[in-house]
């Protein structure tokens, strides 16, 4: 007789606790306006294709937890890029992400003495915190501002050392401001990045000659064609710590939310000179699933 009594008591306790639970976090229930979670950058953070934004990944709002996964390929004249990863958004406040980058050197691998089809790999663990503002709501001149940190770990330390990098791992710090100017249907992002990464970190960090962190800029302009479609352009400046003629990056992108959960992004990217091979311009394709 005792067990049913305890069970009843427990049930009553759970039932009476329900109202308190109503305000708890919702898991993967969505809530963001379409596209306001951004797409996924090559570093696995939410943003444009190459620029990190102040947006938080996942479709959750301040009462939930969201998640997203992505895969990206970039086809360049001499190289092939593939990256994929996951990101978790908590209460539209905190973003935690992981991405793996795989950079296929193809024939260049032979020329660089790495071997045909040598693939450079890197892991990126990142965290982003929304400090203030909202990309859509509130003061129309107050952007959403987020602070981010990215821990990058090249898995090819030998190559990084051979080209003159000081380290195989490093930290990037980002401060982003993003706002959708509804009156013009224009999204603007500006990001300051403190980084010592060579070619994003795939060629290591800093230089044996002493080059360290420097301040770089990422900018994005987008125009909303519809609730589901946006086109735009991005720029990203980069350091040239190794003296290999590393160039700034540019892209022209189009993103489309096929459903509320699936976004595809196509872009034309100009990655300039990579490991002395010039004019690396090509196609960027990315798919993101978010809840």
């Amino acid at each position: 007789m005792r067990t049913p009594c305890v069970a009843t008591g427990l049930m009553l306790a759970i039932l009476s606790a329900q109202p308190a639970h109503a305000d708890d976090l919702e898991w993967f229930e969505g809530g963001k306006l379409v596209l306001t979670n951004g797409v996924t950058t090559i570093e696995g953070t939410s943003g444009g294709g190459i620029a990190t934004w102040a947006t938080i990944a996942g479709l959750e709002m301040d009462n939930g937890v969201g998640v997203s996964g992505h895969a990206t390929i970039i086809e360049l004249p001499d190289y092939g890029w593939q990256s994929h990863g996951v990101a978790v958004g908590i209460a539209n406040r905190v973003e935690l992400s992981y991405a793996r980058q795989n950079f296929d050197t193809r024939d260049v691998g032979t020329a660089l003495g790495l071997g045909e089809g040598y693939v450079l790999n890197q892991d990126i663990f990142a965290a982003k915190l929304r400090l203030l503002g909202d990309v859509v709501y509130g003061d129309p001149l107050l952007p959403q501002v987020s602070l981010g940190v990215e821990y990058k770990r090249s898995l090819d330390g030998d190559v990084a050392a051979a080209v003159g990098a000081a380290r195989a791992e490093g930290l990037d710090y980002t401060l982003s401001a993003t706002k959708l100017f509804l009156s013009r249907s224009v999204l603007v992002n500006a990001t300051a990045r403190l980084t010592e990464a060579n070619q994003n970190g795939l060629l290591g960090f800093g230089s044996a000659a002493g080059a360290g962190h420097s301040l770089q800029f990422e900018g994005s302009l987008g125009y909303q064609l519809s609730r589901r479609a946006v086109i735009g352009a991005e720029v990203r400046t980069k350091p040239d710590n190794l003296g290999l003629g590393e160039d700034d990056w540019f892209d022209l992108f189009a993103a489309y939310a096929v459903t509320d959960n699936i976004t595809v992004t196509a872009a034309y990217v100009d990655l300039g000179s990579i490991a002395t091979f010039e004019d690396q311009r090509g196609a960027f394709l990315s798919a993101q699933v978010a809840f």
């Binding site: 909202d134 859509v136 709501y137 509130g138 003061d139 129309p140 100017f181 509804l182 009156s183 013009r184 249907s185 909303q224 064609l225 519809s226 609730r227």
Partner: peptide
């Protein structure tokens, strides 16, 4: 048209502080 839709939303979105 979508751009006109956003024009109306641009008047409403800043009111979020009084609503939320």
């Amino acid at each position: 048209p979508f751009a006109a839709q956003n024009r109306l939303l641009s008047k409403l979105a800043p009111m979020s502080g009084d609503v939320v």
